[in-house]
Each structure stands twice: as structure tokens, then as C-alpha cells.
């Protein structure tokens, strides 16, 4: 209880809201890494997932890849990459680890979105004479978008919490409060850091949840609204 009050006091102390290790600066750094990783992961995983969903090939490969990625220890991989790439490229190493982490859920969301489209819908798109690309962009991508964004949501939760490990290699972000707090025995600061990370994760998830809702095409929203849950 006391610790909570202390953390709250720490969070509201104006001194912690300024300077290079202030809350705004570190939150921004944390957010930047997260968004950069998500954007890059989407750029790789969405087209790959669409290709799998569209062609029906490569699903077992994707599942194996996702399993392998889950088994990867993020901190170990980060340390390894820093050693290989050199300390000068530790930002790059961090982003690479985060991207690898974010790819599997986004990939799965992209192909699951296409898999979930009723066969009759895709068949009729073919029957009226759409080319493969037209089916992809006009039918598969728009109808699959909500599930893809669901994958991005899952990825964002993982990435937001994993960004913290970059603090171990000296890249400032919200994880810095946990490391510094532990070193100084300042548990209020550690708790404050954890709260900030959780808050950031919730905000991002909320934004993506809204985006996911908006991504459901109107006609599909009506179909689901017509059927009582």
C-alpha cells in the first residue's frame, strides 16, 4: 500500500517529468521503438500472410516459424546480435529482435483473415472474372483486415513489454526506471516504471481495438449485428 503511494508520489513529482530521463522523453522513446517495430513487422508479415492465405500454400511453414519465434529468448538474442553487429548498432539489434517477435502474430492474423472468408464469397469473386490481384485487394484484404489488426494488437502487447530489455544494453526507455530503480533499491521508481509500461500497452491496445472495429466493412458489421450473439 505504502509502495503504491510512493510510486504515485514519484509519478506526480514534477522533477520526474523533465530532462533526458524524464517520463515524456522515455515514454516517447519506448513508443518509437514499439511503433517502428510494428510497422516493419507489418511490412514483412502482412504481405507474407496474404500470400499464404491467397494461395493456400506455406501454412505449415508459417506455423513452424511462429513456433520457433516463440521459443526464441529475446534477451539472449539481443545480446547475441549486439555482439555480432557491434555496440554501435545496438539500436538496430533492438529493432531486429522486436520485429522478429512481432512477425508471427501478424503473419497469423493476415492469413487467418483470408481463411475466415466464406468459400462462396471468394468463389463468386472468381466467377465474375476478378484476377488474382483484384480478388486480393478488393475482397481478401478488406474482409481479412479485422483479423490482421487483431494480430497487430497481440504483437503490440508483446513488443511494448519487450522494449524494456533494451534498457539492459543502455538504450533509454521506460525499462530504464526498472533497472535504475533496482540498482538504487528504489522500489517506488520500479513500480512507477511498470505502471507506465502497462499504461502505454493499454493505450496502444485501445487505439488498435478501435481501429479493428472500424476495419470491419459496413456490410459485414450489419451481417453480424443481424444475428443475436
Amino acid at each position: 500500500m505504502n509502495l503504491f503511494a510512493d510510486a504515485l508520489a514519484w509519478l506526480t513529482d514534477p522533477a520526474n517529468w523533465t530532462g533526458p530521463f524524464g517520463i515524456p522523453t522515455l515514454t516517447l522513446a519506448h513508443l518509437t521503438y514499439t511503433l517502428l517495430a510494428l510497422v516493419l513487422a507489418c511490412a514483412v508479415a502482412a504481405p507474407a500472410g496474404w500470400a499464404i492465405g491467397h494461395t493456400g500454400h506455406g501454412r505449415s511453414f508459417a506455423v513452424a516459424l511462429a513456433g520457433a519465434a516463440r521459443a526464441l529468448p529475446s534477451l539472449g538474442l539481443l545480446a547475441f546480435l549486439v555482439l555480432v553487429l557491434g555496440v554501435g548498432l545496438k539500436e538496430v539489434a533492438t529493432v531486429v529482435v522486436l520485429v522478429l517477435l512481432a512477425i508471427p502474430p501478424i503473419l497469423a492474423g493476415a492469413y487467418a483473415g483470408i481463411d475466415a472468408i466464406p468459400r462462396g464469397t471468394l468463389d463468386s469473386a472468381r466467377g465474375v472474372g476478378m484476377t488474382g490481384w483484384q480478388r486480393l485487394w478488393r475482397v481478401e484484404v478488406p474482409l481479412g483486415l479485422p483479423l490482421l489488426l487483431g494480430g497487430v494488437r497481440g504483437a503490440s502487447l508483446q513488443v511494448v513489454s519487450t522494449v524494456m530489455i533494451a534498457a539492459f544494453i543502455g538504450l533509454p526507455n521506460l525499462g530504464t526506471y526498472l533497472i535504475a530503480g533496482q540498482r538504487l533499491g528504489d522500489y517506488a521508481r520500479m513500480l512507477a516504471g511498470a505502471i507506465l509500461v502497462a499504461a502505454l500497452a493499454l493505450v496502444l491496445d485501445g487505439v488498435l481495438a478501435v481501429a479493428q472495429r472500424l476495419a470491419v466493412p459496413r456490410g459485414v458489421r450489419m451481417a453480424t449485428a443481424a444475428v443475436p450473439a
Binding site: R126, G129, M130, L143, G219
Partner: peptide, 22 residues
């Protein structure tokens, strides 16, 4: 096949309409 399907009318069982189009 694509050009052929564009010129041949095809009405499917269960309409097969695109759900996101009016």
C-alpha cells in the same frame, strides 16, 4: 479464364454476393 468469366453470366447457389458491397 478471366476474360471468359467476365463475358459469361454466372448465378450461384446462395447468391454469392460480396458482403461488403451493396
Amino acid at each position: 479464364p478471366v476474360a471468359l468469366r467476365r463475358s459469361v453470366g454466372y448465378v450461384m447457389q446462395n447468391s454469392g454476393l460480396l458482403p461488403h458491397r451493396t
